[in-house]
Amino acid sequence: MITLKNVEKCYKTKAGFTYVLRQINLQIAEGEFITIMGPSAAGKSTLLNIVGMLDHDWEGEYTLAGQAVHTLKPKQRQALNRQYVGFVFQAFNLLDSLTVYENLDVPLSYRNVKTSQRAAIVCDTLDRFGIVGKKDLYPSQLSGGQQQLVAIARAVVANPKLILADEPTGNLHSTQGREIMKLFKKLNEEGATIIQVTHNEEYAAYGRRIIQLKDGWMDGEITPDQLPGKAR
């Protein structure tokens, strides 16, 4: 589903070019669950943003579902993003001024889904995630776990084939974190391709492959069994 060839990203500074990603070559098949790990400033989030087409300023080749992203204009990339991608953030990033229902409605409205259809999809998603009772609450009225649950519901409401999660459990305590990871596993089993960034080995083990980044370079690829802690 995803092919990255020699993807590189750098910033121009007074001292010259500072690379954030170097020669990233990666293939991800449809339905995979991938974990990206690495120390701070390794380029994990940057790689995720490039895959999610939020970042347009990079070099190399990137193919998503057969479409050569590197040849597309920003507007076309946005369209592709809307078609395939759902995002989950560490800080939840729910829109504070909107209710749970409206937060879920937003991605659908951006995809020009008809109002009647939107209502059905949002209600179905609320039901699926067990948050019907919270639909009229604002994010500030929810716990951290509930907020991330809503954030994941929002990420999948438009039925994306690819879910990108940037440290989705970073702001949650362990019990809530496990619940969220189980949810990702379930979504993956239902067919979604998932790429998550995490520092946590326990949660990293939910992925079938673990890509390790260091100083912008791919530092290797391991399976969950090869994780030092073998948490599972």
């Binding site: 809307r82 990033n93 951006y110």
Partner: peptide
């Protein structure tokens, strides 16, 4: 700023 970025990440076209 972040609200706008999140909206963009959720698929909002710039003009929206």
């Amino acid at each position: 700023q972040r609200e706008m970025a999140v909206r963009a990440a959720l698929g909002a076209a710039r003009w929206r």
